[in-house]
Design a protein around this nucleic acid. Structure first.
Lengths: 224, 224
DNA sequence: AGAGTGTCAATTGTCGACAATCGGCATTTT
DNA sequence: AAAATGCCGATTGTCGACAATTGACACTCT
């Protein structure tokens, strides 16, 4: 028994949804761009039905919008929407931290230490996409340590939106080394399991990111 | 100009999604129940395609689950999942309150007063569904007063899940009058725009609800 | 020229059909 | 009789087709 591992029956719809998500997050599909069903279905080598279903999944996640009789479009991000997203993230992640301080196992803490190491590792060599990815992975671990699966789902949705938004503005971390360092206060508070200190560290850390992103978006909007 | 109001082009998929959601929330569709595409499509008088798309929307919202080659099923709720949901709601709503204290307009406060009145109004005469609905409406207004649209979206999703869960256990408010009264501390803090007091009032209020719901779910699970 | 109208290609909305697969029941085997 | 196998109806996965609608362009009329 149990010699074989389960075979993945990833259905078409899920695969397509994943690919479209990836294309949006990496900027290959730009906000406002139309998702023509026929064209996509040809690229995927399928009919339109699975494409439509995948698009519905993404619609519900807010990654694409839908207008009846007009079709699906890549979701656009305004500065104020990005502010809302980051602001919500503050509430979410502070709550995650509050819970994590009580519930995090030593293994959780160790994993976070390791992830922080990876953050430093990205400095100077990894692509900007990798840096962003590892950054989000760190914060996701905090949510994970909260032990609240529902919370993680919301975080993942927010993270997808943030990644899509950040990709738009291109640069965000002028100094990867410094980016890693700004996580130290968070890690410190976690090591000490000091809830108040963790909340403050997170609040500051995310607020800085929020201000940077929102400022860049406002720049972008002024230019456009 | 502007003599006519826009005509609603609610597309089939949205209508179907709404009806299925309603059926789940009201308990006409029970957790674990299979959503047979052909049967649903016949009831809606459509083909299977729109039904599948609607189901995908709900899947992404977590209201239904999907197994490849097996189909869509009404999502089940465990006691621990309900705890996660309420726990997340605490984080979310406290953050909403924190923001609302600063941003709520006088009109927002007035609307909340009015809604509190409606809560009292449901006591003794309205159906339990109405009581639940008005209760959630009150809390939704707090989220609305936060001015964060993204936050409201998450709240709405959680509210749908909570309503579906509560419907399962049937009773929840033994005393509607008392239910309304427990909102007074929240309203008080809002009137004074006292952030800390509001947070404490909300935390207590929701924690009580959480404990009640989780206890009933554990009862349910023990029985089954 | 400019506003309004007609026309048409492109695209979406929905459908019915067919193959693939699943779960349960009957049947066989030991 | 219990377990394994084979079979069959029910259901899903995907497709191609056709009608309806849209947006853009060309055209007309003043």
């Amino acid at each position: 028994m149990s010699v074989f591992s389960e075979v993945s029956t990833t259905d078409l719809v899920t695969q397509i949804a994943r690919q479209i998500t990836e294309a949006i997050v990496t900027g290959h599909l730009k906000p406002g761009e139309r998702l023509t069903e026929l064209q996509l279905s040809r690229e995927f080598g399928t009919s339109r039905a699975p494409v439509r279903e995948a698009a519905r999944l993404l619609e519900s996640q807010g990654l694409v919008t839908f207008s009846p009789r007009r079709g699906f479009f890549v979701r656009t991000f305004s500065a104020s929407e990005m502010r809302d997203i980051y602001e919500l993230r503050i509430g979410l992640e502070l709550h995650a931290g509050y819970l994590a301080v009580e519930r995090a196992t030593d293994a959780d803490i160790a994993a976070l230490e390791k992830q922080l190491g990876r953050l430093y590792g990205t400095a100077g060599q990894a692509s900007i996409e990798t840096q962003i990815f590892e950054d989000f992975a760190f914060h996701r671990m905090i949510c994970k340590a909260s032990g609240n699966a529902r919370l993680i789902r919301v975080y993942d949705e927010l993270a997808t939106e943030m990644r899509a938004g950040i990709t738009l503005i291109g640069k965000i971390y002028d100094d990867p080394q410094r980016m890693a360092e700004t996580h130290e206060p968070i890690m410190d508070a976690l090591r000490k399991r000091d809830g108040d200190e963790l909340r403050e560290a997170l609040r500051y850390h995310i607020a800085v990111a929020r201000d940077a992103v929102v400022a860049l978006f406002e720049e972008l909007e002024k230019g456009a």
